[in-house]
Amino acid sequence: MTERPDQSPITSPRSERVRKVAALAGRSARRKQQMFRVEGPQSIRSLLAHRADLAREVFTTARADGAHPELTDLARTAGIAVHEVEDQIIRAMVREDAAGKTPDGASADGANPDGANPDGGQASGTLTSPQGVLALGRLPAEDPSAAVSAIAALPSGQPLTMVVLHEVRDPGNVGTLIRTADAAGADLVILTRTCADPYAPKAVRASVGSLFHLPVVTGAEIDEVLEALRSAQVTAAATSGYAQAELFTAELPSRIAWILGNEAHGLDQRTLEAAPLAVRIPLAGHAESLNVHTAATVCLFETLRRRQAGE
Rank of each mutant, 00 (worst) to 15 (best):
A275C: 15
A150L: 03
Q269R: 12
T2A: 15
T161A: 15
G115K: 01
I281L: 04
Q88W: 08
A141H: 10
L247S: 08
S156I: 10
A135W: 07
S124I: 09
L24N: 05
A75V: 13
P198H: 04
M35F: 09
E246H: 08
E57R: 00
G310E: 11
G266D: 09
G120S: 05
A309R: 09
N173P: 00
A203C: 11
E224T: 07
G285R: 05
F36L: 05
A64S: 01
R95V: 07
R31F: 11
R255H: 10
D114T: 08
V21A: 01
A181M: 09
Q131E: 15
P130H: 02
P118H: 07
R169N: 08
A81S: 07
M162K: 07
E302G: 01
A108F: 03
Q308A: 08
I151P: 00
V163L: 15
L54T: 07
P113K: 01
V38I: 14
A78V: 03
E96Y: 13
R179A: 04
D109M: 00
Q34C: 07
A123M: 06
D6T: 02
R95S: 02
G40L: 01
R30E: 14
D65G: 13
E16S: 01
A92V: 13
Q7L: 00
G115F: 03
G40Y: 06
L139R: 04
L134R: 05
T72C: 13
P41C: 06
M162E: 12
T161Q: 14
A22S: 01
L48Y: 10
A111S: 07
A220H: 00
V298S: 10
G241E: 13
T294F: 04
H166R: 03
E84D: 01
P159W: 12
T60C: 11
V18R: 05
A150D: 05
L74E: 06
G285S: 08
P103W: 07
T249V: 01
Q7G: 06
I281T: 09
H68A: 10
S145V: 00
P282T: 11
T126Q: 12
A52C: 08
E84W: 04
E263T: 07
V164H: 05
A29W: 11
D197F: 11
P215I: 05
A238T: 09
M1C: 09
N262G: 12
D182A: 05
A49E: 13
A245K: 06
I281E: 10
T126N: 13
T180F: 05
L127R: 15
W258Q: 10
R27H: 12
S43L: 03
S124Q: 12
G137T: 08
R306Y: 14
Q34E: 11
D119I: 04
G125A: 09
R230N: 13
L54H: 06
D65K: 11
V82K: 02
A150S: 08
R280P: 03
L71W: 13
T303Q: 02
A275L: 03
Y242K: 15
R37A: 09
G115N: 01
M162G: 13
P130A: 04
H50W: 11
N173Q: 02
G241W: 12
P41D: 06
I178H: 05
A141S: 14
